[in-house]
């Protein structure tokens, strides 16, 4: 498998530049993720967990590529999903408001 497996298979980091890991198990709060980072909440299998602090508006990186922007500040160990990470593409709603995507 490409990427780096964390711990005894708790998560997978697909690229060295990534600031999220993919959970390879259902994670619960306090589960160790990487180094000093522990899960701060439940993260279901296949979902993403933050590896480092991500500020509001910062890029979320997986596969070494930008997959979206944080829509709030995200702490290490937090679940990263639609509630705190937004796509920047195909945003007809923003085009309507005249807010062009960057």
């Amino acid at each position: 498998m490409k990427g780096e497996v964390l711990g005894d298979g708790v998560g997978l980091v697909l690229h060295a530049d990534d600031n999220v890991a993919t959970a390879l198990q259902d994670l619960e709060a306090q589960d160790p993720i990487d180094g000093d980072t522990t899960a701060v909440e439940s993260v279901p299998f296949g979902h993403k967990v933050a590896l480092e602090p991500i500020a509001d508006g910062d890029e979320v990186v997986k596969y070494g590529e930008v997959i979206g922007r944080a829509s709030g500040s995200i702490a290490p160990g937090e679940w990263v999903h639609t509630h705190n990470c937004e796509s920047t593409r195909g945003r007809g709603d923003l085009a309507e408001e005249g807010v062009a995507e960057s």
């Binding site: 296949g46 997959i67 990470c85 796509s87 920047t88 593409r89």
Partner: peptide, 12 residues
Amino acid sequence: GGLTTIEEKSLG
């Protein structure tokens, strides 16, 4: 299933 954005889905 854990996919958050179209970019993430596309990259996969």
